[in-house]
Design a binder for these strands. Structure first.
Lengths: 344, 344
DNA sequence: GTGAAAGCGCTAACAT
DNA sequence: ATGTTAGCGCTTTCAC
């Protein structure tokens, strides 16, 4: 299209280039490009034209160093492989959309050591805020966060002490309420199926709460089955088959996530098991996927989108005020009984 | 625990603080913290101790400005909501793991304007490389990338001209080969079900290739059905019902992704349709989820993990050399016939 | 409304 | 093996 003289500029453009091209001081160019301060419309026009023509992209590194302001929000999550964290991210992005803040994502794979490394890396960019999953962190991570002077929002879980702000649900309570609902529906011989992840503290807390809830009725978890890796749907099938092979008289299976629950449901339907009469099922998370299954799996919504929204709003709200004081937001998950718990 | 004197340091620590605390010059502290140059073990020890005690976290903004080096790789993708991009990210992370480079993710929601904004934002941080999905970009985006002097890898798709390097598959070819396989299996009245996204160029190219493949046998797509938003599994059911209501004599349904294909499969099984004898089905992507379905949906693996790996390796390989010259890698998707295409 | 000077916190390059 | 100097590209502050 355009036939500019063959440039060989592998040197990125600077404010100075735009300044020279427009015949205006660097300072004024800077003002125009940031919409800061008064600049005459004429000058503004010339500057913008020059910048656009050259294809100037400002250097935020220099800008951040000079202004001591960084429009980045660090988001640290355990995984992208399941549906839960992407949805939290969606909430965060949405809330940040018109604030001038940008989320930057780091993934820890549920490894505390990775969390520490990712956190260190991110803090070294001096973000405007940190959003990270869970309340359990290494001492070093905690120290870094406390010393950083940056607003911190811990998300997903509220069962424990927070560093600064926190937005989430009580997984203990979620487990307890599911147990009560199951008991109330008349089920008595109950199995639990989950992941083999010592560092998934939220799953652990749900199981603890679940056990407490059963204990209120003098019941216990009859059998458990754990997995790691692989297709969750397939694992759900396999585990269901395995636990029922050991205990044919189980009348309820509580899964630690919807994906394995869905696998279990499909397996039961394949094998002509009468769900929910002879066997009840429930999962956790409220994933969209469940809408397409032959029957609606009972579940509990984890409020993922809203957690992301609220967390980002907290960060966006603290416009540079630093750590003012922790906000604490506990959301309440809804029990969605679906078609896999008996109605009495 | 520890009872340090009540600090009020909302000022982040600098190299200078560590320098004073350890009685060593800033320069030497810097060398220790970066493992650069020769430092005596004794000094090193003192510096590390001081840095750790103070809880010093280096300021990468200043470091990047001074060194003109940024260990960030910009990754720009359309969405996190389906399984495909998270898996690409996994590949990228894995390949970058020991290179000292960090991926930074931006999401465009399939909107060219968003892509432009995200790209501008990311380029302003002067990353070491850019990985972005697709070959279709606005003129402005293209200009920014070309002027940046930064290595660029376009991923997922190879059907078209690339800016610099490219790693992906030919979606046209994927569509064509699926068409040939379907025709070879004896199906003749074929429907297509997909997303209503004008900016999903890869889905469009698959459909074009598919039509070409059918045309080779003198066939055409009999009917189409498109959706947007909502639970893909559920949409797959609904669309399948709708298209079959219009054309009861269809003998094959090609879905533009596995999720709606899985929904279609479940619907067919629910309604006692003889798959694959009276109706064949196929999807696209090769998602793990399919492993847990009652029957294996035919699909084509999109090589997502490998695309991520290769793309990241290209960036990591160009250690500061800048844009040397485009590498082009075309991966070959495997057809996985599963149980939903007739065997002859 | 515009410009000049100083400096953000670090590292490259050059001493020593 | 360690220190000194200059400056990365921008913004803050103050002057005009």
């Amino acid at each position: 299209m355009t036939h500019d003289p063959p440039q060989e500029p592998r040197r990125p453009l600077t404010l100075r280039d735009v300044s020279e091209a427009s015949g205006v001081s660097e300072m004024t160019v800077s003002r125009v490009l940031r919409n800061r301060g008064d600049v005459s419309p004429a000058t503004r026009e010339r500057v913008i034209r020059a910048a656009k023509r050259l294809g100037y992209v400002p250097n935020k590194i220099a800008g951040a160093l000079a202004s001591q302001r960084v429009n980045l929000v660090a988001v640290i999550i355990p995984s992208l492989a399941n549906m839960v964290f992407p949805e939290v991210l969606t909430g965060i992005s949405r809330a940040l959309d018109d604030t001038g803040l940008q989320p930057v994502v780091g993934v820890t794979d549920y490894a505390p050591a990775r969390e520490e490394a990712v956190l260190y890396e991110m803090l070294s960019w001096r973000p405007s805020g940190v959003i990270l999953a869970g309340l359990e962190h290494s001492d070093a991570s905690r120290a870094m966060l406390e010393n950083s002077g940056i607003p911190v929002v811990e998300i997903m879980d509220v069962d424990g002490p927070a560093i600064d702000s926190v937005v989430g649900i009580s997984h203990r309570r979620a487990g307890r309420e599911m147990a009560r609902a199951i008991v109330a529906a008349g089920y008595r011989r109950i199995g639990f199926l989950g992941t083999k992840m010592p560092d998934d503290h939220r799953a652990r807390k749900r199981l603890e709460g679940f056990r407490d809830g059963l204990a209120e009725a003098g019941l216990e978890v009859v059998d458990t089955e754990f997995y790691s890796g692989g297709s969750a749907l397939l694992k759900g099938r396999e585990m269901t088959e395995a636990i029922l092979a050991r205990n044919a008289d189980l009348d309820f299976l509580y899964y630690s996530n919807d994906m394995i629950g869905a696998g279990g449901l499909l397996w039961c339907l394949d094998h002509g098991i009468d769900v929910p009469e002879s066997l009840g099922l429930a999962g956790f998370n409220g994933v969209e996927l469940l809408d397409g299954l032959p029957r609606r799996l009972a579940t509990m919504d984890a409020c993922r989108l809203e957690i992301g929204l609220k967390a980002a709003e907290i960060i966006a709200g603290k416009g540079g005020e630093g750590v003012v004081g922790g906000v604490r937001i506990e959301l309440t998950p809804r029990l969605e009984p679906g078609d896999t718990i008996r109605r009495r």
